[in-house]
């Protein structure tokens, strides 16, 4: 694998994470539990889709095969999407959406802090621009985890169930392979192993304030980075890609 191929793959993986999570959050539009949260969740969705746009633009440039960001976002098959499994999981109740966001935001925040110093100028610039958004997402989801966990008996039980369910997707966030190895050597990618302990410390601090906890042991799933997804992604893509598949090249 050449450095260029690795860079394309790396940027594409990050772009897919943000697009798919952004799309999931957009499904809340008009369905939020209260007006204020409806707006908050769709704001997060817009931030993430905005980050995805920049990442796809850069991926297309690196690939240099005449595809643009829309081709990458809308015209690939399920197996070609390289997002982690966590982000494609269904919204469930509001608590589950918040937990999924919480687990992702803490990771993304530590990742972008490091990518701001990437030897690749474009990645560093995107990380620097996105970090403020991510820090706000982190604050939003962490505060909700605390309030739901330490709220009523029902909110506690529901959100604990989501923490237990979604904990099986945590390890995949730190997944690394040849793509990462090539770019870590160049100072372009961040070595996820270097902040894994910090990640667990950070989420455990919030969870314990919320009177919640990660399960002792949980079977860990992965495959997303290789394009092997859970059953949910296909349905999501059917909706995401509908317009471009039905009216190819449509603009508005």
């Amino acid at each position: 694998m050449t450095k260029q191929e690795a860079l394309f793959e790396y940027v594409l993986r990050k772009a897919d994470d943000t697009l798919i999570l952004g799309h999931r959050l957009s499904e809340w539009c008009g369905h939020g539990p209260v007006l204020e949260e409806d707006i908050a969740l769709t704001n997060l969705a817009l931030d993430l889709i905005g980050q995805a746009t920049e990442l796809y633009q850069y991926a297309a440039e690196v690939e240099n095969k005449g595809r643009n960001e829309d081709d990458l976002a809308f015209l690939r098959l399920e197996r070609e999407y390289k997002n982690v499994l966590l982000v494609e999981q269904t919204n469930g109740d509001f608590g589950k959406t918040i937990v999924r966001q919480f687990l992702f935001d803490h990771f993304q925040s530590l990742l972008y802090e490091r990518l701001m110093n990437s030897a690749d100028e474009q990645i560093a610039a995107i990380a620097e621009k996105s970090i403020k958004e991510v820090k706000y997402h982190l604050k939003h989801s962490s505060e909700w985890v605390i309030r739901l966990g330490d709220g009523t008996e029902e909110s506690h039980n529901r959100v604990q169930e989501s923490v237990t369910d979604l904990s099986r997707y945590i390890e995949e966030l730190f997944y690394q392979d040849e793509v990462d190895e090539i770019l870590i050597k160049e100072g372009i990618a961040a070595d996820t192993a270097s902040f894994k302990e910090e990640y667990y410390n950070n989420i455990n601090a919030v969870l314990s304030e919320a009177t919640l906890s990660l399960p002792e042991k949980m079977w860990q799933l992965d495959g997303g980075r290789k394009g092997v997804h859970s059953e949910h992604l296909g349905f999501l893509l059917a909706e995401l890609q509908y317009m471009q598949r039905t009216y190819p090249g449509m603009e508005w």
Partner: peptide, 14 residues
């Protein structure tokens, strides 16, 4: 509407 002061600030921001 917000459950407490801190959430009110967050909601106001959004």
């Amino acid at each position: 509407r917000a459950a407490d002061a801190e959430m009110a600030i967050n909601n106001a921001r959004d």
